[in-house]
Nucleic acid binder design. Structure first.
Lengths: 333, 333
DNA sequence: CTGCCGATGTGAAACGTTTCATTCGCTGGG
DNA sequence: CCCAGCGAATGAAACGTTTCACATCGGCAG
């Protein structure tokens, strides 16, 4: 493949001129510019990114580390991140940890070696910001940076849990089951905390009102499987708050199979607002998270830090979730 | 950040030795190796990928160009691709074209400049394999390479359409609506072709049996919107074959709102088998595509081509879809 | 004692850019 | 007629690796 020397030779100009045509066209006379451009097209010259990056000392690439690419939540996040990066001419390296700290560590190393301009990280349990001694700018995604030693973009999960709780309590439910995925995801803990607050606000004892129910994983199958446990709770709750929509979908399906009707027998509310949530026969109430915006905002923050090194101060963006009431939790008439 | 010179100096060895510790440890004496390794840890040396790639003349990175990251189908493909790449130590650059040929062209250029080792491409309409004059190995994803001038991994959409058609015809449906997204996606054309074949096999005239119905986009909303048109078809079909599950979900929802029951009034079958398809109140029949496998196989093919340049012959892997019959298309009892 | 070998280590060259201090060639003002 | 000044082009140096031809050294066979 042709390099810049070849182009220079064929166009009868020097190295520097070709480089200027590429990077500072205003410095080179129109005629020369055209000639060089023509030769470039002719020999199919494509600038070598590695050489450029080596010389420049920086890349136009950011890393995105997520827990599960197949999960619609992260998918939307990735979508937003890719869009924001693309608008500014950056490429995104996609890294999927599947919640494994080992893979996370591996990717952290690989990205550092690639000299990515920055990283967007949805951290696993193991991730400690001490990894931040690395000089690469990092934005924490979907996780609040408590130490504020880096930017972060997250959604207020406590507020979301509280909204869901207030909604159900207002409808008159006396006991509420909280179905959550593994507590290694801080999100599930925060949402429960919000729920507890909502209960406390009514002057009741959260421990008496809330029945926690753990699913083995955070997918629809596990959600469905936990309905059996739900049915056996003495003094069965009349409402279920599911820690995410996937769980809720499984629950709804399993409830129907048990002959229980939503919302007549059990009210149901999910979390996330995946785009199919509205499409169920009994449309699912849920707490909406701004997924795309999460990824988009995080990337903008990251790129600001990357480009404006000087005057950058770390910011914590916390989105407010939104209560979406649909059929599944409407008080039966 | 420390470089290899710094490490060499501190460890009291030469450049080459440090490099050997990194790349050919067997060539350096144990004691020296340990000393160098120790210094590396001490100064936090991280090898500069750009310099390495420049010297080597190759990267450990592949590009993945898809039409829509937010679509669960591509998401699964990306998941498979990332997994296969990661297993072999490659990183994946995620590129989302949103079906825009311009963005596609842009990414093709950007990836070429990055000197990716290879590309996985789900092409837009505009993509012509002439772009393949580029020397980078390419594997076509979800699209058969007719000219066979590169590898490809796809699913037999004609067969899938045929399966869906045979299934509906066997249930006794005399007229079938085919709801498809934009025909710029070759998939929709192939699936229709399969459906026509299935009809022809029964000795009937495809044009008399099949009523094509175009949705404005391939998402649930557009699917729902087209139900109005469906209802106005004279001599209304008793079955709908949706070109993908998203459309089907919208259709199912809209039908319910019109007071029509699935499958009693209308039988419904989708395409893709997104993982929520089984979870609807009326579980959706569909044609399953091996999505993860698609991405995984494509990446393996690509990496084989990348690493085994010599003895590589282009292969066309065509997966066979699978008919999944659930409630939505069962003959009412 | 000599010569040779293998194991180990060395450092210059090369990869393809970008940058920047210089040089070149003109023009117009004095 | 000279020279300051300007637009345009030049090309050497530097970025941080890997490679490879070569040097060094101790030991061992002859």
């Amino acid at each position: 493949m042709a390099n810049i020397h070849e182009v220079a030779k064929r166009a009868g100009v020097s190295l520097g001129t070709v480089s200027n045509v590429l990077n500072h066209p205003e410095l080179v006379a129109e005629a020369t510019r055209q000639r060089v451009l023509h030769v470039i097209g002719e020999v199919g010259f494509v600038r070598n990114g590695s050489a450029r990056q080596l010389r420049i000392g920086a890349t136009q690439t950011i890393g995105l580390i997520v827990l599960d690419v197949a999960n619609p939540f992260f998918t939307e996040v990735a979508h937003g991140a890719e869009a924001a990066a693309s608008e500014r001419g950056y490429l995104v390296i996609l890294c999927n940890t599947g919640n494994s700290p080992d893979k996370e560590a591996h990717y952290l190393d690989a990205l550092a070696e690639q000299r990515v301009a920055g990283m967007l990280i949805v951290p696993t349990v193991a991730y400690t910001p001490d990894s931040l001694r690395r000089e690469t700018p990092v934005v924490l995604l979907d996780r609040l940076s408590k130490e504020a030693n880096c930017c972060s973009v997250s959604v207020d999960d406590v507020a979301g849990g509280e909204m869901a709780g207030q909604h159900l309590l207002a409808a008159g439910h006396q006991r509420i089951a909280y179905l959550h995925g593994p507590f290694t995801n801080a999100q599930y803990i925060d949402r429960l905390e919000g729920l507890r607050r909502a209960v406390a606000q009514t002057g009741r004892d959260p421990n008496a009102v809330i029945v926690p129910l753990a699913a083995s994983a955070d997918n629809a199958q596990a959600g469905g499987a936990s309905v059996a446990a739900f049915c056996q709770i003495p003094d069965r709750p009349t409402a279920i708050f599911c820690g995410n929509d996937y769980l809720a979908v499984g629950v709804m399906h399993a409830l129907a199979q048990c002959g229980m009707s939503v919302p007549r027998d059990v009210a149901l509310i999910g979390y996330d607002d995946i785009d199919l949530a509205a499409m169920f026969s009994v449309p699912l109430s849920t707490i909406r998270q701004p997924k795309y915006e999460l990824g988009y905002a995080a990337t903008e923050l990251l790129l600001d830090e990357i480009t404006g090194k000087d005057a950058h101060t770390h910011r914590q963006i916390v989105f407010r979730p939104e209560l979406i009431v649909r059929e599944s939790s409407r008080t039966p008439v």
